[in-house]
Design a protein around this nucleic acid. Structure first.
Length: 926
RNA sequence: GCGAGGGUAGUCAAGCCAGGUCAAAGGCGCUGGAUUUAGGGUCCAGUCUCGCAGGAGUUCAAGGGUUCGAAUCCCUUCCCUCGCACCA
């Protein structure tokens, strides 16, 4: 007997697996699975571990089902994050250094090289491969690539040529969050503050002020007729600037912003805010109005000047009222222009007074503004003298009219502030030109995706609605970038293809990755890929032989059967890839299915590298062993559920494997003669095989493990309990050992590989045949007998506990034949309400009277309580209970340590005998 | 705020779609017992409340409804997770 030593099993297996999982086209049926490849900017933690281990279990399962399985892996290195990381390391940023040196344990000399972003991803890609291998992932590593390989770039260019020709790539203008210090657009990741802020399109209403304009930003241009004044902040210094050749008076901040939004701006002079107060401005649509002072005007909001509509804007109303209470500007009256149900003549006044608000700093002001805004937008109508149109129509028309006739321009601004970049600078809105988009908004394209989605298998099924929603919701996607690593954008080579957009059909690339390397990238024209993937012939193709081999690989493997990824990728990658597939590939090469994963927790908290709340996969493997990690990650939750890594639970998983190992080692040599109970065990085993196989076909790793691990373990316990004294099992156990080891092999391949050899097999268990249930070995009669016995034992135990006497003997009283008949009649009946009446029509039953009615009632209750797998066979034919208990008499006497008598109710004379029912004998303890 | 998915005993979790097999599987934890020099391991039993005969009562976020019958179906409220984009 060899000792349980996971470390040693791992070494043994790695040696034997070295090239074992390299997979080539064959005459077997193929099974191709892919996982979203990692962006290797740091070390792998146990959360990553599950993402790759679950597919590996599935791969191993189908491999044993004798499919030709392909499970490849590559590394996604395109994008900007590592560029930022390398910069931070170059300037010795303490947080970054701490993360990489102390948490990810990068050696000092390697860390020094990290000033080059490519070094980072290369280092961690190698690291990933090493750790993945140590976990026993059965990956075909010949197909590994990274997304900056020149060959891969050629593939991306080919892909984009098709997208472009299909009209899905368009050029546009786009407002983005922008940091002027970094000179770069700012993503959510790069924000210190303000990630909720949205870019809003304002219309600037241009008021004439002498020879200059005062532009005020508004979301409600339709209220221009109600303007009574402007607001300027007397404490702010404004500037007069030439904007596109016209003089504007705006805040300093606004001048800086406008530069980023396609305007030439030349600041001429400064004007203190107080100098503007009480001056008059005019607009063709509202006439001449004064500028009033207001401290609430924020120079950093749009132009720093605001138009005031006190009748419809609570802020304006209350600010004006405050001034008037000081006796100033009393001649100004709010000018209403919108009628809205539920409010009086002057809605803003109405709302403020109803809410009992007394000053502008009241915290409810924002909500109130929102309330009026929504009410007027959804139900409001302009007065007839202003056109009488609904607000939602008038707003758009008025904005357009102002832009056309009244010098208005558009300005973009955030709806809330502050918005701060990670560098500490304020983020502004910049209009990007030469920005390219993938036109995901195209209804025809969406339709193609929706149509295909219907044919795809989605696991778990609940995610389907989310996919449908995402397809409907997707807008155009900005697909070019100016920084980071990546493939040059073919129609504008200063730009790069955005990293999510270069990774949508790479699953096809895996099929040829190991062969295309042999060809000089310069020769890889789009025609070459058209031939490999689409079968399009063209003259002068290079290396025709190699191309044919690749075409053969592609045709064999593609489409992929399942793609695995975490659920946070539904709204981008997982949906994008369908868009790209439907454009490029023919119908029979479109993806077949997806499995969406839940998230990982560590001791109940979300795993996060930046917060340091991670447990590195490598540490987990060395501490607990690869099989333990695998079994825990696949067994503690189904793949789509969130899982929680807790060391104490992992430890108990390890014990479980040890127990399994010890059991097999102990049982494999059993030589006893098979007994009835062996037939029971083998019968049960067939059912475990069926259930476990079904579970794995449905990706239910947890369910499968429960079936194969605890299910079989529990059976064995009963089996051993039932064995006659001095017998340690029969040679049938050899079958069980072989089956059990194979069932667990996908989960704990290292231990299984070792045991498989111990069981006398020369070949790898990784390729051994998956157990198939033999219907003929299923013996429901024996199972029923054992169930009766087990239930009776349970009953005896619970009675024993209740009465608390030392029993001297045990009598099992069997129900009479007529009760069996009643039981059967009820079990067979479809209408359980009338069946009792039917029974009582029978003469012999009538004679028994109340005894029979009671028995019928009790049987009905019992039948409700018993599981169907018990009731069904009993409905067909009665079980010979006497035989069951006589066979088990020795067992029962041994269990309870007292003599056991088995008697029939009618001859026993025991009062208790009357309660005996089929499948529930009466028990008398004396 | 909008969209999607959830809330089950100490805890993790099955059951829910196809209502009665549900006081509700299984794991972990805890308690007691057996084995053991001890610990560990293993085995047995218990783990909502009451009960000295296998039973009864009250439970499945909260409240209401449908039904002979609801953890399961419908409605409302509260709470949690994920996504909301130019980012992997």
């Amino acid at each position: 007997m060899s000792e349980f030593d996971l470390g040693r099993f791992e070494e043994e297996a790695h040696e034997r697996w070295l090239h074992a999982f390299e997979s080539n086209p064959s005459n077997r049926e193929k099974y191709y699975i892919t996982v979203a490849f990692p962006y290797p900017s740091g070390a792998m933690h146990v959360g990553h571990g599950r993402t790759y281990i679950v597919p590996d279990v599935i791969a191993r399962f189908w491999r044993m089902r004798q499919k030709q399985v392909l499970f490849p892996m590559a590394f996604h290195v395109t994008g900007a994050p590592v560029v930022g990381i390398s910069k931070r390391i170059a300037r010795n940023d303490p947080k970054t250094i701490h993360l990489y040196r102390d948490l990810y344990k990068v050696p000092q000399n390697v860390l020094e090289e990290f000033t080059n972003p490519l070094t980072i991803v290369r280092h961690f890609a190698a690291e990933y491969q090493r750790v993945m291998t140590s976990c026993g992932l059965s990956i075909d590593w010949r197909r590994r690539f990274i997304t900056v390989d020149p060959t891969y770039s050629k593939f991306v260019e080919w892909q984009w040529k098709h997208l472009y020709e299909a009209g899905h790539v368009i050029k546009g203008v786009h407002p983005v969050r922008y940091c002027t210090v970094d000179d770069n657009p700012v993503g959510d990741h790069d924000l210190l503050e303000g990630d909720k802020a949205e870019v809003i399109k304002f219309t600037l209403v241009m008021f004439r002020f002498g020879d200059a304009f005062i532009p005020t930003a508004t979301l409600r241009p339709e209220t221009i007729h109600g303007v009574t004044n402007l607001w300027a902040n007397p404490n702010v210094t404004y500037v007069k600037a030439l904007v596109d050749g016209n003089a504007w008076i705006i805040s300093k901040e606004a001048a800086e912003k406008l530069v980023l939004q396609d305007h030439t701006v030349e600041v001429k002079e400064e004007i203190p805010g107080k100098d503007l107060v009480d001056k008059n401005v005019s607009h063709p649509l509202c006439g001449t109005v004064p500028i009033l002072p207001a401290d609430f005007v924020d120079p950093d909001m749009a132009t720093g000047m605001v138009m005031s509509v006190p009748a419809h804007a609570p802020f304006d109303y209350i600010a004006l009222r405050d001034l008037q209470q000081q006796g100033k500007y009393t001649q100004i009256k709010p000018v209403p222009l919108i009628k809205v149900d539920g409010y009086g003549e002057v809605p803003a006044q109405d709302a403020v007074e109803r809410a009992g608000i007394h000053h502008q700093m009241d915290s409810r002001m924002d909500a109130l503004t929102q309330e009026i805004y929504s009410a007027e937008f959804s139900k409001g109508k302009l007065f007839v003298k202003f056109g009488g149109k609904p607000v939602r129509v008038a707003r758009e028309e008025m904005a357009q009219e102002m832009l056309n006739k009244y010098d208005s321009v558009v300005m973009y601004e955030f709806d809330s502030r502050p918005v701060i970049c990670r560098c500490g600078n304020k983020v502004k809105v910049k209009i990007l030109h030469d920005q390219w988009f993938l036109k995901y908004s195209d209804p025809a394209w969406k339709q193609q995706v929706s149509d295909h989605l219907k044919d795809m298998a989605l696991v778990p099924p609940e995610v389907r609605t989310e996919f449908d929603r995402t397809v409907g919701w997707l807008k155009d996607w900005a697909c070019t970038r100016r920084v980071g690593l990546g493939t040059k954008f073919p129609w504008d080579p200063v730009q790069l293809i955005e990293p999510l957009s270069d990774s949508t059909v790479y699953m096809a690339y895996y099929t040829i990755a190991h062969k295309i390397r042999e060809i000089d990238p310069k020769l890889l024209t789009p025609e070459v890929f058209d031939y490999i993937f689409l079968g399009k012939k063209s003259p002068d193709l290079p290396e025709k032989r190699k191309l044919d081999a690749m075409r053969e690989e592609f045709l064999y493997w593609y489409p992929y059967d399942f793609r695995f990824s975490a659920k946070d990728l539904i709204s981008n990658h997982l949906t994008f890839q369908i868009f790209h597939h439907v454009t490029i590939f023919p119908k029979d090469k479109l993806p077949k299915g997806m499995v969406v994963f839940g998230m990982g927790l560590l001791n109940g908290a979300k795993m996060s590298s930046s917060k340091g709340n991670v447990f590195l996969l490598e540490d987990a493997v060395s501490e607990f062993g690869a099989d333990t990690v695998r079994m825990f990650l696949t067994g503690s939750a189904e793949p789509w559920q969130d899982f929680d890594w807790r060391n104490e639970l992992v430890l108990s998983t390890k014990k479980q494997i040890e127990r399994f190992y010890a059991t097999i080692t102990e049982l494999k040599g059993a030589q006893g003669e098979p007994q009835d109970i062996d037939r029971w065990l083998i019968s049960r085993l067939q059912e475990h095989i069926v259930k476990m196989t079904a579970a794995l076909e449905n990706f239910q790793t947890r369910q499968a493990l429960q079936e194969a691990s605890f299910g079989i373990e529990t059976d064995l316990k009963w089996y051993r309990r039932r064995l006659p004294e001095g017998c340690d099992g029969s040679r049938e156990l050899a079958t069980l050992c072989s089956v059990w080891t194979r069932l667990l092999a996908p989960f704990i391949p290292f231990t299984a590989e070792h045991l498989w050899r111990e069981l006398g097999n020369k070949d790898l268990i990784s390729f051994a045949e998956w157990p198939v249930a033999d219907e003929k070995l299923i013996n429901s009669k024996i199972e029923l007998s054992e169930e009766l016995l087990a239930r009776t034992v349970e009953d005896i135990e619970s009675i024993k506990k209740l009465i608390q006497i030392t029993p001297k003997s045990l009598t099992i009283v069997l129900a009479p034949a007529w009760k069996h008949e009643v039981f059967r009649t009820i079990a067979q009946s479809t209408d359980r309400n009338t069946v009792i009446k039917e029974i009582m029509k029978n003469d012999t039953m009538k004679k028994r009277g109340k005894e029979a009615t009671d028995a019928a009632k009790q049987c009905t209750t019992l039948i409700h309580r018993l599981p169907p797998h018990v009731v069904e066979p009993l409905a067909k034919e009665p079980l010979n209970e006497r035989a069951v208990f006589e066979e088990a008499q020795a067992f029962l006497e041994h269990e309870f340590g007292v003599p056991v008598h088995i008697v029939d109710a009618e001859s026993s004379g025991h009062a208790k005998g009357a309660t005996a029912l089929p499948f529930k004998p009466a028990i008398v303890i004396e």
